[in-house]
Amino acid sequence: MRLRRALALLAGFVIAQAHAAITVIDDSGASVTLGQPAGRVVSLAPHVTELLFAAGGGARIVGAVTYSDYPQEARAIPRVGDNKALDLERIVALHPDLIVVWRHGNAARQMDRLMALGIPIYFSEPKHLDDIATSIDKLGTLLGTQASARAASDAFTRDIARLRARYARRPPVSVFYQVWDDPLMTLNRENVFDEVIGLCGGINVFAAEKPRVPTISTEAVLAANPEAIVTATPGATKPDRPLPALDRWRRWSSLTAVARGNLFGIDGDLINRPTPRLALGAAELCRDLEAARERRPK
């Protein structure tokens, strides 16, 4: 009887432990399992830091990379490197029980060394608007902050739904999104910002190009003749603020975007990071494209 009871207790313990384990699937398709909610997290991308805060886990971040500057509290988190080089010794010294990385933003060689440490790693790379809400929920599960995470993900989903309902069926506006000016680079359809353009009733003129961030020629832009040209800036578009990155286009006065004054700059942090703030960037773009519609000849 004693043996049976002991075995029963042991079996109950094993079952309880199995039920206590937390498992989610990250953006690489791999399973990430923790024995208990993460209490010490290292973030290896600025967008990851924002997602962790949104999920209710900001106070648990013990290390982050350069440019992890939002929200304000993130600026006080100890730095462990940047997207080019990581301080692996410092990461280990922080004793994290979870590391969240950007698969295509952190150096591959260092990623191999990081994975060899045996610390659970979650790869974060939201590729679609819906992925942002999903990422917040998954991180909330790993942190044990599901309620906070769900509130944030639901709010983001509602904001995007409102914009889609208001703008997606408006008359289309052809858009060239300029990622970089030298060399001239843009984005194809395999990027979350392409979805934002469509959300606002826009059409990405280089959606079919390859690779995801293709280099293009000035002639290609002139041939596409977009109705609006958009780029990322340190701040929002202001009537009296010059846009040096877009000045190159002003020499072609017959270009539709130039002729109608549709050269727009949007705060880069709002459109380049797949975080809840992307809803704010989307709202700015939607307003800019609506302005482009209003400037059409009557």
Rank of each mutant, 00 (worst) to 15 (best):
T49W: 09
L285A: 05
D182A: 13
A55H: 12
D288S: 13
A116Q: 06
K84R: 10
R248S: 02
P274C: 02
V24K: 01
T233H: 04
A59M: 06
R277D: 10
R75P: 13
I136C: 10
V62L: 03
E190Q: 15
N225A: 10
G201H: 06
I15Y: 05
V230Y: 06
M1S: 15
R293C: 02
I22D: 06
R296G: 01
L98M: 08
P96M: 02
I25W: 03
D247S: 13
D69H: 07
T186H: 02
V213F: 13
L51H: 11
Q110K: 02
R170H: 11
A168L: 01
A224M: 01
T218Y: 12
L289C: 00
A116T: 11
V179Q: 09
L34R: 00
I203P: 03
E290D: 15
D267Q: 06
I77F: 07
A147N: 11
Q72F: 04
R4Y: 08
N188D: 12
F13E: 06
V221F: 01
G198S: 14
N225Y: 01
R273A: 06
T237K: 02
R158C: 06
R103Q: 15
A74L: 01
L246K: 08
C286V: 14
I15V: 14
V192D: 02
T275C: 08
Q146L: 10
A220L: 14
V62S: 10
R75S: 14
D181H: 11
K138S: 08
D82L: 03
P297G: 05
L280S: 08
V24N: 11
L98Y: 08
G118D: 07
L222Y: 10
G35I: 08
W102E: 01
